[in-house]
Amino acid sequence: MTDPSSPAPSTAPNESWREWLLTAEPRSRNQARLGRAYVTWRRFSENRLAVTGLLIIVALILVAFFADLLAPHSATVGDLAGARLLPPGSPGFLLGTDDQGRDILSRLLVGSRITLAVVALVAIIAAPVGLLIGTVSGFAGGYVDAVLMRITDIFLAFPKLILALAFVAALGPGIENAVIAIALTSWPPYARLARAETLGVRNSDYIAAVHLMGASPTRIVIRHIMPMCLSSLIVRVTLDMAGIILTAAGLGFLGLGAQPPLPEWGTMIASGRRFILDQWWVATMPGIAILIVSLGFNLLGDGLRDALDPRGAGR
């Protein structure tokens, strides 16, 4: 660190760093920002379950990144002759193999990439769209609000999976289309949420104050209203991640998502269905993977809710 205001690493460098971060009188904007981030992190990290959730997600990201190195076998080409439907624990195949003789562990590891991509893409598309529509609708009111909210209601009126099914059916099966379909169906709840938050704050004096200073409506929405909606939105999105994974898996299961031989977890369950009674592991292993990752996102979301809650904000 070259920051001159940082303390000299004296006898107890950890202590003085903490002091520097937690000081009641930060000397620069960056110090204040770091201090705040630190306090939020401390609050988050006190929650064991939340940290577990975070670890699961970090592990997922690492696994996705290094899948090629970690996977002991090919994820798509199996040994049809010598290794069909081996049970878990067979030498060389820790989690067993499927009907094509492919190593399930390798497929799960490589499949994590698809899961992660689906989740990230949906979050990147759906959350900002929902946030924008919700805040604009709530802030503008009148016609704009009525029109945007009717559209939202139409989307909300259908169960998510059914609507996604309809989109995929129209767009054609495939993982890209599944992602688009899921994104298209997940923004309405975010829009509703953002609008509700916006309605609560738009008539407040602090919004009137920035209006009085001459701020444009765009500036008010982006810089003053959106931050108010952000934390509840982030929490909601992480909590929804589990649902998104399951929807993607659902589409895969119905044969409308990822196409074989792509190792998408949902598709893997679908193909294992046929041997569920005799070779239970083929469908169960990807099921457990989905369960763990969903749980991770859920725990993370819960933890974030507590950590980002302004009322608990450290003094």
């Binding site: 004096d205 104050a209 920035v210 701020a215 302004p310």
Partner: peptide, 26 residues
């Protein structure tokens, strides 16, 4: 303008610094 209720006229998610910077930025 200075508003009636000091509990409602400052943005709850912005530091004093941000709130003072805003009119200058505008």
């Amino acid at each position: 303008m200075v508003f009636q209720d000091p509990y409602a006229s400052l943005h709850p998610r912005q530091t004093v610094d941000r709130q003072l910077l805003e009119p200058l930025a505008i």
